[in-house]
Computed example of a mutant assay.
Amino acid sequence: MPPSFSFFTPADIRARLPELGALLQDCVLDGASIGFILPFDGAASQAFWTDNVLPAVTRGVRLLLVAEVDGKVAGAVQLDWDTNPNQAHRAEVRKLLVAPAFRRRGIARLLMQALEGRARQLPRSLLTLDTRSSDHAEALYLSLGYVVAGSIPGYALAPAGDRLDATTILYKQL
């Protein structure tokens, strides 16, 4: 069955918090470099959604787009446009997540395409993001037309806490 996509409201986030928490935790446990260090438990994962994402969605400065397959949360991505007045033309893509069990089905690509469409409607003409250098996500972003602005060595501690990884900064003009 193909995935379905919806922008979650604050009520949706609260109602689906366990599933969103499991999505984030599964991705971190699978090695995703998305800001968290092991050990990473369910409580910390749910706290991210309630303390970080929910307030921004409630304030109307972030969108949470969720992909579902057979009624299960399979992936998510965020669009953050909480910018200064001189940056009202841009937004940041945050936390592209696809559960390991749902990977290799094109869900990440579809999430990004839908998010870009919504960014155009805001209207935002520039998207930025960062990703671990040489990560599989970097190839996805490049295939979607994102351009490398540069990389920063030793930018973030790897999820296992055993090394510092570089990050690549990318942008796309819509």
Rank of each mutant, 00 (worst) to 15 (best):
A32K: 08
A43M: 09
I107M: 07
E68N: 11
W81F: 15
L63P: 03
D30P: 01
D51W: 10
V61P: 05
G42C: 13
A56G: 01
E92I: 05
N86D: 12
N52Y: 05
R90A: 14
F102A: 07
V53S: 05
A101Y: 11
R90T: 06
V98T: 06
T58F: 04
E68L: 10
Q78F: 03
A99V: 09
W49P: 02
N86C: 09
F40L: 06
L63M: 12
R103P: 05
W49G: 11
A47G: 04
S33K: 03
P85K: 10
D82S: 14
I37N: 14
L64C: 10
V77R: 04
R109T: 11
P100V: 14
V66P: 01
R105I: 04
S33E: 07
G106A: 05
T50P: 00
T83C: 15
F48D: 08
D51C: 08
R109Y: 06
I107G: 03
T50L: 15
N52W: 02
P55E: 13
L65W: 06
G60N: 05
G60Y: 02
A32R: 03
H89Y: 15
A108T: 04
L65M: 05
L65G: 03
R94L: 12
A99R: 03
V73M: 07
D41R: 02
L63A: 03
V57I: 10
D82C: 04
K95Y: 10
P100R: 13
T83F: 11
G75Q: 08
L54I: 09
F36I: 03
V53M: 02
I34D: 11
E68W: 09
D80Q: 11
D51M: 11
V98F: 10
Q87F: 15
P100T: 10
E68M: 02
D30N: 12
V66K: 00
A99Y: 02
K95Q: 13
L79R: 06
A32D: 04
G106H: 10
L38K: 11
L64H: 00
V69S: 10
G71T: 06
G31A: 06
R62W: 04
L96R: 08
G42P: 07
K72W: 03
V57R: 02
F36L: 10
F40M: 09
A108D: 13
F40Y: 15
I34W: 07
R62P: 09
G71K: 01
P85A: 14
F48S: 11
S33D: 04
F102G: 01
P100Q: 12
V93C: 05
D70Y: 02
D82R: 09
